[in-house]
Amino acid sequence: MTEDTEIFRHTISVLVDNEFGVLARVVGLFSGRGYNIESLTVARVDETENLSRITIVTTGTAMVIEQIKAQLGRLVPVHKIADLTIDGPSVEREMALVKVVSKGEKRVEALRMADIFRARAVDTTEDSFVFEVTGVPDKVKAFIGLMEPLGKAEVCRTGVVAVHRGTDVI
């Protein structure tokens, strides 16, 4: 039974009509059927066709992941669905804004860490930084973890966006 119970993490891209209520349909589908959403991003990506792209990171057994894609496919405004986790290699990125409030040595250490993670200070006062860090979710998570003892005060993450590598398109 292990193959039925093992939980996988998948990144799914959905191309939808940019219309009233479409996000509610997608989110309602996940909550109504008890699927997980680890992160969700949405924005219009095609102005002429008026399409939005939704990127969902979800977890579930192989059977549940298949169901999620099939259920998304039933939604009438959905044009395309791609499972970036199994389609082949893909690029995933997430951005976070991390506010760090600290003084003295901690402040210096925060700046040094930010440098290593290629995080940029996008706002600063004498007592604070706002760092912008971009990368795969693990990197973002690691950076946030390191800021914890250095005065981490507030975190905002965008959730994952992703595309196929190479010439493949959704």
Binding site: M63, E66, Q67, A70, Q71, G73, R74
Partner: peptide, 8 residues
């Protein structure tokens, strides 16, 4: 006709 019925 409904792919979501399969393997549900």
């Amino acid at each position: 006709i409904d792919p979501s019925s399969i393997n549900k």
